[in-house]
């Protein structure tokens, strides 16, 4: 058992955004969160990494309630990659990745070789080691997302939470980012928009609809025509692709 939510609720502006969700991540596996816009994916991810406080229910990390952990200890275990987080400050790639060492360093600690090794290793894992000194504002969207993932890896987390890591990327970069995440081998929970990509890259899928968990399980069991019709309101035909994964074809009315 790694990260788990039990009957978690959260509301904002008098509206229930996350409504009694129970789910857990399996060690070393990728759990995909899918659902239409406004179904509560981002909010649930923020509850899981304690960026928002649950109104009721509990989020646990190894059976320890995350609300009781000191923040920096949580940040050593759990890293979060936001969608499209950017900055106006003139930072280099390694400046950004170095931020990942924040939870490991005391307020007045100086930079150590352990820190430097963690940064170099993280950059190597996302294939950006040669971009060490490049400035953030000169990077493309896909490169920025890689740097964010490297920053998260420099935290040395055992769980990684990603909010739509492929948003606004072209298909080549979407695939390369997801392949990269697959190869990390750490427990991941990520929100995804693209159903086919979710089916291709996730070990498990949880489906959110209006803040409630509708179904969870392997892509093969969860991705069904009636469920997608119900949750997303679109007609689909699902077949087995050459990869063995499910392929979702959208059925549209003839023009």
């Amino acid at each position: 058992m790694t990260l788990a939510a039990r009957d978690v609720r959260w509301s904002a502006g008098g509206r229930m955004i996350v409504d009694g969700v129970t789910l857990h991540a399996k060690p070393g596996k990728i759990l995909g969160l899918i659902g239409p816009n406004g179904s509560g994916k981002s909010s649930l991810l923020r509850l899981l990494c304690r960026l928002r406080k649950v109104a009721s229910g509990v989020v646990t990390l190894d059976d320890c309630e995350i609300g009781t952990l000191p923040r920096h200890e949580l940040a050593r275990r759990l890293a979060f990659v936001e969608q499209q987080a950017t900055t106006e400050i003139q930072l280099s790639v390694c400046d950004v990745v170095r931020l990942g060492r924040t939870p490991h360093r005391g307020a007045l600690a100086s930079w150590t070789t352990t820190d430097e090794d963690a940064v170099e290793a993280a950059l190597a894992r996302v294939d950006m080691a040669d971009r060490h000194d490049q400035f953030w504002h000169t990077l493309s969207g896909g490169e920025r997302q890689r740097v964010h993932i490297a920053r998260a890896l420099a935290q040395m987390p055992s769980e990684l939470i990603l909010d739509e890591p492929t948003n606004h990327l072209d298909i080549q970069h979407q695939l390369s980012i997801l392949t990269l995440i697959r190869r990390l081998g750490i427990t991941c929970i990520m929100a995804l928009h693209d159903l086919n990509l979710a089916s291709l890259f996730c070990d498990e899928i949880a489906v959110l609809h209006e803040g409630k968990l509708v179904d969870a399980g392997t892509p093969e069991t969860v991705m069904t025509e009636p469920l997608i019709q119900h949750v997303f309101g679109v007609a689909v035909s699902i077949r087995r692709a050459a990869s063995g994964r499910r392929h979702i074809e959208y059925l549209i009315e003839p023009f």
């Binding site: 923020r46 990494c49 304690r50 960026l51 923040r71 920096h72 200890e73 949580l74 940040a75 050593r76 890293a79 979060f80 936001e82 987080a85 950017t86 900055t87 400050i89 930072l91 950004v96 931020l99 990942g100 924040t102 939870p103 360093r105 307020a107 935290q155």
Partner: peptide
């Protein structure tokens, strides 16, 4: 170090502990 962590916003800083 906390101030550095604000580079990507308050949520990013919180996620860094």
């Amino acid at each position: 170090k906390a101030l550095d962590a604000f580079a990507f916003g308050a949520d990013a800083a919180a996620a860094l502990g």
